[in-house]
């Protein structure tokens, strides 16, 4: 559970960027969180609310966190089949071999933020 620290990092990046653009109130933050990124959306929402509560100058009361999930996907390097990995995530459902590589779901990005002067 390091979502508090992660949210702190996220808000630092936004704070710095907003400062350069003369934005002083944040209205919305959008993240992309992959299913195998290790970050938990619920815990991120909780952390966001805590930071918002503590930084009333920087956040609009109605400020919201929007999380876009990125589904985990794997692709077989042998037959090219794309599949949703289960527990044996490298196992291609067609070849029945451990020939799959994760091609999506590891992303953990700050997509955008919205704010006003």
């Amino acid at each position: 559970m390091h979502e508090m620290a992660l949210m702190g990092d996220i808000l630092n990046v936004i704070h710095e960027d907003a400062g350069k653009k003369g934005i002083s109130k944040i209205q919305k933050v959008e993240l992309i969180v992959g299913d195998v990124s290790n970050a938990l959306p619920d815990a991120l929402h909780m952390a966001f609310e805590i930071f918002k509560e503590q930084n009333k100058v920087f956040f609009e009361d109605s400020a919201a966190l929007v999380i876009h999930r990125e589904e985990a996907k794997a692709e077989c390097v042998v037959c090219g089949k794309e599949y949703i990995p289960d527990q044996k995530l490298a196992f291609c459902p067609v070849c029945r071999m451990p020939s799959g590589k994760i091609i999506s779901g590891e992303t953990f990005q700050i997509l955008s933020y919205e704010g006003r002067q």
Binding site: L6, I10, I14, Q109, E114
Partner: peptide, 13 residues
């Protein structure tokens, strides 16, 4: 005003 960043959260790390 909307600002698109597409920055990795772990950038600093």
């Amino acid at each position: 005003m909307k600002v698109t960043l597409r920055t990795d959260v772990l950038t600093n790390n």
